[in-house]
Design a binder for these strands. Structure first.
Lengths: 196, 196
DNA sequence: TTTTATTTGGGACATTTGTCCCACCAGGCC
DNA sequence: GGCCTGGTGGGACAAATGTCCCAAATAAAA
């Protein structure tokens, strides 16, 4: 549900600590709600989450928005844009206070080229993301909402994701109204997941 | 619509031709309908399409199936499984006669490690696939079907994809009945896209 | 050619989902 | 307190989608 990647985090931790320059890796803090990347804009930075959670969203008619994924500890932001040299495909916003490493795109590409372990780790990260993204997309189409909702609620029970109902609906790709309806008609389940 | 990647194809073409061994790269032909990778099975091979088209599908209750993407010239199959060492996340089936390069997983990983150009090209390929997959997923949720259908038909007009209506429906994540309905109620458009 | 599947096209009805609208509650602010 | 704003919960109706079922056209097999 909330994607993480401790391998990458460990590598970056070490790199940031070593050498005087820390390989151009900075540490920055952002407060909840801060927009790290705006869909369609040209970002030059790559981030690595130390702590906190962000949501990646995509919108088209800009009235509705779809949540692609929630990223947590060790996850990378802006790599796709750095690699393809294209404007950001999605927006990324902190939904909790955030601590992250930050470095510019060219340094990131350098790292990819020179550090074999890092290269390997990024390759795996992208492969996993790709399978996860594809699977979620497929499941969302194949199963009735009822089923997807059940899965989601189960995942949320121990992930304490600080998000609103609207965000849950956006994640499921449905309207808030539909979400409420399903929660209501749900057999005697405790939806006390909203610990926020 | 049909993903391709000439850069990769060029690299593999050269590799396959050089050296006596051709770096362990074989050329194989498959006929339409052949299953190259079965969801859930453990594949050890990686393929590079020389010509022809395949469809990648995912199914859960195995009665319905969702089409993740159509891959053509230069595209790679089985890389995700080789990289993550996990069983195949989707099935891949030829929907036209096919010619492809083939090599085993460990050779592929070697290539990734030793050949910088190849590494770079694969990195880009995965990044592009990731953005495309995510975007398609998002669009499918955000827009009404009517809109998605229009897009799809437009793409098909010059891509002459040899697939059935059922497959189109599977790609859109809807039932065949729904697809027919939309095609019928469609303003005076010529859906003569079925040149097959 | 006859027979058998596969593919395609659609009617009728049940279900699901969206849209519009209203109401309640809690926290921050004047 | 009163006043806003954002999050929440749900009624009523319209629109979209699925399910079941049947029929014609086309392709494949005998």
């Amino acid at each position: 549900m909330i994607r993480k990647n401790l391998t990458i985090l460990r590598i970056i931790d070490e790199l940031a600590g070593s050498g005087q320059t820390g390989h151009g890796i900075l540490v920055r803090n952002f407060h909840k709600g801060h927009l790290l990347i705006g869909q369609g804009t040209t970002t030059t930075n790559v981030f690595f989450i130390r702590s906190g959670i962000v949501k990646c969203t995509f919108s088209e008619n800009n009235d509705k928005e779809y949540i692609l994924e929630f990223l947590g500890e060790g996850q990378v932001l802006g790599e796709l844009e750095a690699i393809t040299q294209a404007p950001a495909m999605s927006s990324v916003r902190a939904i909790s206070d955030l601590a992250a490493y930050m470095l510019d795109g060219s340094s990131f590409l350098d790292l990819l080229r020179r550090n074999e372990d890092f290269n390997r780790a990024m390759m795996e990260l992208m492969a996993v993301r790709l399978t996860d993204t594809a699977q979620r997309s497929a499941r969302q189409q194949l199963n009735p909402l009822e089923h997807n909702l059940t899965q989601l609620l189960a995942a949320l029970e121990y992930e304490k994701l600080p998000c609103t109902k609207q965000e849950l609906a956006d994640y499921l790709g449905i309207t808030l109204r539909s979400l409420n309806r399903m929660l209501k008609d749900r057999p005697a389940h405790s939806h006390k997941w909203f610990s926020n």
